[in-house]
């Protein structure tokens, strides 16, 4: 897998402070989001299998999504029990937590509990998620790369962030084989975040060294080769229908997909 400098403890060059992804967090919420990431940094290390930040925010933190939105924090857990244990623990001092759901919401292939956290003045959504088998995928990369480590200075304050954050290539795999992905594409719903994020990743990663070999090797390990190829083919076949006819993608993409897994 390609190296992401900021994940390599002690080996990264001096990072810009604040990191460039902060620009894509609404300024009014920046301090709240960063404060919560700093709090989360102290919550995972005692866990046998820690939560991992997945979803859109992981792509923002990894500097793959470059637009401003109201970002939620999605925490992926290894089991339903781990979600419930985390939900039951006392919030760190200074953090207010409100649960939107009365209980763990179980659906097809997913269980989730939606909460909001507040430290300063703004509420940030923090969703606790169990979604087998994807934890294994993200955890195996986390074991190799370690957590995301950043020092963020905002005004006079400095925040230490040290949290497990999914790698964009794993997020790509998770999204492309998600059971909901094919129905979203077939419905033509181009505003759906999964469609958008996958296209952004194809745009940024297609020509990255190691991307395709990583996808193929990992897909083989998890028995996902057919699903990944079909997902990509489906997306490209429906590109115009989804409204992305003008979205620029690397010219080599068709050939890369054509060769994938063959």
């Amino acid at each position: 897998m390609g190296t992401v400098d900021v994940t390599m403890d002690g080996q990264h060059p001096r990072l810009p402070i604040p990191p460039s992804w902060c620009v894509f967090v609404d300024p009014e919420r920046r301090r709240d989001l960063i404060s919560i990431l700093a709090e989360l940094s102290g919550l995972w290390e005692g866990m046998v299998e820690p939560f991992i930040i997945v979803g859109a925010l992981s792509l923002v933190l990894r500097e793959r999504l470059r637009f401003t939105a109201l970002w939620d924090i999605d925490l992926l857990f290894p089991s339903e029990e781990a979600v419930e244990t985390f939900a039951d623990r006392r919030p760190p001092g200074g953090v207010r937590v409100v649960a939107y759901d009365d209980q763990l919401m179980r659906g097809a292939g997913i269980a989730s509990l939606h909460t909001a956290w507040r430290i300063c003045s703004k509420w940030i959504n923090v969703d606790y998620i169990y979604r087998p088998p994807f934890y294994r995928l993200h955890y195996s990369t986390f074991e190799k790369d370690g957590p995301l480590i950043q020092e963020v200075r905002l005004g006079e304050e400095t925040f230490q962030i040290r949290v497990p954050v999914a790698h964009p290539w794993d997020v790509f795999l998770e999204k492309i084989i998600s059971p909901r992905f094919s129905s979203v594409v077939e419905s033509g719903y181009g505003m759906h975040p999964d469609v958008r994020h996958i296209l952004f990743l194809l745009q940024s990663e297609t020509e990255q060294e190691g991307f395709w070999s990583y996808l193929e090797q990992t897909a083989r390990v998890f028995g996902l080769v057919e699903g990944v190829r079909q997902g990509m083919e489906l997306l490209l076949a429906n590109r115009d229908y989804l409204g992305y006819g003008e979205f620029e993608l690397p010219a080599v993409l068709d050939a890369k997909i054509g060769r994938f897994g063959r």
Partner: peptide
């Protein structure tokens, strides 16, 4: 929140049956 400068929260929830 972003364009009008107001305060806003947004939450989502799904029924327990299935997404």
């Amino acid at each position: 929140a972003i364009y009008d400068g107001k305060n806003a929260t947004q939450s989502q929830s799904y029924g327990p049956e299935a997404r």
